[in-house]
Simulated scan of single mutants.
Amino acid sequence: MLDATRTHTSVLIIGSGPAGYTAGVYAARAMLAPILVQGIQPGGQLTITTDVENWPGDESVEGPDLMIRMEAHAAQTGCDMIADIVTDLDFKTYPYTATLGSGKTLTANSIILATGAQARWLGLPSEEFFKGFGVSACATCDGFFYRGQDVMVVGGGNTAVEEALFLTNFASSVTLVHRGDSLRAERILQNRLFANPKIKVLWSSEIVEIMGTTAPRGVETVRVLDNAAVVTSDIAVKGVFIAIGHKPASELVAGKIETHSGGYVRVEPGTTRTAIPGVFAAGDLTDHVYRQAVTSAGMGCMAALDAERFLASQRAMAAEKPAVEDYV
């Protein structure tokens, strides 16, 4: 853990998911003595998942266990951790300044933003109860578990249609529940969806309750309200995939860094560089396409390497700057 007297770092990492911890490993190995602020949910979204079967090198690993291992790896390599949140960032003066929830301030020569994103949820108590036990926001992550099962997808945009189509590779049937009477997805995706015999669409409908077993916890039935007919029906499914969008955790830099697509931090293509020199973004905070743990980890690596190169260029420029006496 961080020395309480330390107030400056070459690399400040904000966020502790796969992107943040991987950045910590690489920055520490580069002897940059990084400081990582873990945030309100140390470990990120993987801490609310169960089995992870698409992490290279692990046939199956519990999400929280994987994040504990990543944290330990970053710490062992030499990344200092702070169990706190960043409440404000000042990019107006250099080195940059971060204010923490505890009141402590840190200055940094470079900053890696890795605050992630959160899936948008329906807000039902039963949905919360079954998260990780039949309710998911990632078909790519969890679809494999529903081989030969009936599943449900909620949403009407590109993500919902793509997830429904993806799930047909495993599930016996897919029911798409959409509160509107037409889809927002691209026409080509709609055509594929309507042509797939495994997919059924429930129009003008919404989930009102998710029901199942408690020991062991698991989804069995979903109660759906048909808003047009004003009737409810219970549909037997084993998995429910919420696909109504993601919200990047970019509130900290709102109005300070350019964003796009609903709040994702914009970076220079092929890099993690933002428009502010020495400030980098990695993981789900900037990635609105893939949103996978392994791609987030890869971007964390990229951010640390980008920060290392930035700092090296700063040192080189400082070394080349003539001393005052050279002008006298």
Rank of each mutant, 00 (worst) to 15 (best):
R192K: 13
Q76P: 06
V151T: 02
L225D: 05
Y264C: 10
L106Q: 10
P125V: 00
P18S: 10
A4N: 09
N158L: 01
L100E: 04
G57R: 00
R192C: 05
V328P: 09
S233Q: 15
V224D: 12
P18V: 02
S102V: 01
A72Y: 02
G44W: 04
L89C: 04
Q45D: 06
L225C: 04
L66D: 13
Y290G: 07
A19M: 06
A304K: 04
G57E: 04
G239T: 02
L106A: 07
D90C: 00
L167Y: 11
A228T: 14
I207L: 11
I188K: 07
E128G: 09
D88Q: 14
Y146H: 07
P322D: 09
E127Q: 02
A75M: 07
A243T: 05
L202P: 01
A307Q: 14
H260A: 15
Y94L: 12
G218L: 07
T77E: 15
A75Q: 10
G263R: 09
L2M: 11
F194P: 04
L32T: 00
Q314M: 13
R184Y: 05
D284S: 05
T7G: 10
D284L: 04
T5M: 11
T271K: 11
H288V: 00
D80V: 02
C301V: 05
E162L: 02
V154E: 07
L36V: 00
V161I: 06
Q292P: 10
D226R: 00
T232L: 04
E186V: 01
A229C: 02
I257C: 08
R147C: 07
M302F: 11
E53C: 02
Y26A: 07
G283R: 12
K104C: 03
Q76A: 12
W55E: 09
D326L: 03
E59A: 09
V154Y: 05
T107L: 02
R192G: 13
L183N: 01
T107E: 12
T272W: 10
L66V: 03
A119F: 01
F145R: 05
T232W: 03
G255I: 05
K256N: 12
A236K: 15
N191P: 11
I257L: 15
A108H: 06
L167H: 04
P248T: 06
A30S: 13
A98V: 00
T140I: 15
V135L: 07
T140K: 13
P197E: 03
T214N: 15
P322E: 07
D326M: 11
L106P: 04
V135F: 11
A316V: 10
G39H: 00
V151Q: 03
E127K: 01
V37T: 02
P216C: 05
T286L: 09
L46W: 07
G143F: 07
R315Y: 10
A83M: 09
V289T: 12
K200L: 10
T49V: 03
L225E: 14
N109S: 15
T77K: 07
A304L: 06
A23C: 04
R273M: 14
P42K: 02
H246E: 13
D287G: 08
T47P: 00
C79Y: 11
L193D: 05
A303C: 03
A98P: 11
P95W: 05
G24T: 01
E308M: 11
V324H: 13
